[in-house]
Design a binder for these strands. Structure first.
Lengths: 164, 164
DNA sequence: AGACGATTGTTGTCGTCAACAACAATCTTC
DNA sequence: GAAGATTGTTGTTGACGACAACAATCGTCT
């Protein structure tokens, strides 16, 4: 996108209220370039949108996917443990689990050793569904490769490995 | 944070309701590792929190900073141009500008050439304030270097240059 | 000149998400 | 057993993206 074609007039910085048609790609970012946060924010928005689009047919959003994946890999976790691991507020996790439980993808089992907590498990249906989600997620990951290059994607994962 | 110390029992995968004290760092991410989106999300959260913390004394959030920076570098831009350049909804920009204008950091000048639009300018106060913000933002950027390394930060900016 | 469509700023709604605070039930510890 | 901590839950707040509608204005076509 943003197919350049900035063939507007050369003069810039028109004093005050003077307005000329301005293409977005000819506006200087100035100090913003060189800010990692800005680049990362834009990149993250792009990634999430592609993830949502790629998994739209199964109606799974990134956070839901991360919850299902963690529970699938560690059955019996408590909500507290999942929340801490994924950096989600336990208050927020409640609603996430509500919707996933309504969709019969997982279930809350009352723990016998600690009657406050719930042990989280995928349903059989949830297991098979998750397998499908993972295939789509892999496709999404390929989109990223196409966007920034295979080597860059791996370098990126390596750089950010400490934040998992 | 998360000072390891995972000296809990070796057995895992306790069947059903059996709950044992579990440290967050011993929970497998499984398929989540290798997902660029997950790493980027965590990284972005970390960056934003550090930015907010570093600029708390001046009460400036990342989005506000990006708006001020772009206007500072391109005085006279319309709201539409700023919104398009930063990927912000113009509806959302209205509130952002409201608060910044209330704080006397910028002003909306009625454009004479196009009476629908406003030409955005920093106030004198806004210019000097922005200089201070930029110093703090540079400090924030140094925090990132300390976190992932100077070389990695530059590589990152290079990889994500297409998303500015 | 006049009409029609597009653009700009604005207001509003909706849903996602992080951050808190409060609460009942339950566990842990003294 | 009492006091304090933890777990799941409900609720509120505020930042944010997406969308729809609207009045004022511009550009264009005839």
């Amino acid at each position: 996108m943003t197919a350049s074609a900035a063939q507007t007039s050369p003069r810039k910085r028109t004093g005050n209220g003077a307005a000329r048609r301005i293409d977005a790609d000819e506006i200087g970012l100035d100090g913003l370039i060189g800010h990692a946060g800005y680049a990362v924010r834009r990149f993250q928005i792009w990634i999430f949108q592609d993830f949502i689009k790629t998994l739209r047919e199964v109606d799974i959003r990134p956070t839901q996917y991360s919850v299902l994946t963690v529970i699938g890999a560690n059955p019996g976790l408590s909500q507290m443990a999942v929340a801490k691991r994924l950096g989600i507020e336990r208050a927020r996790l409640v609603h996430l689990l509500d919707s996933l439980e309504e969709r019969k993808l997982l279930k809350r089992v009352k723990s016998k050793s600690d009657r406050r907590s719930h042990a989280l498990h995928l349903t059989a249906q949830g297991e098979t569904a998750l397998a499908g989600f993972k295939r789509l997620a892999a496709e999404h990951e390929r989109h990223i490769e196409e966007k920034i290059g295979k080597a860059n994607r791996e370098r990126l994962l390596q750089i950010l490995a400490g934040f998992t």
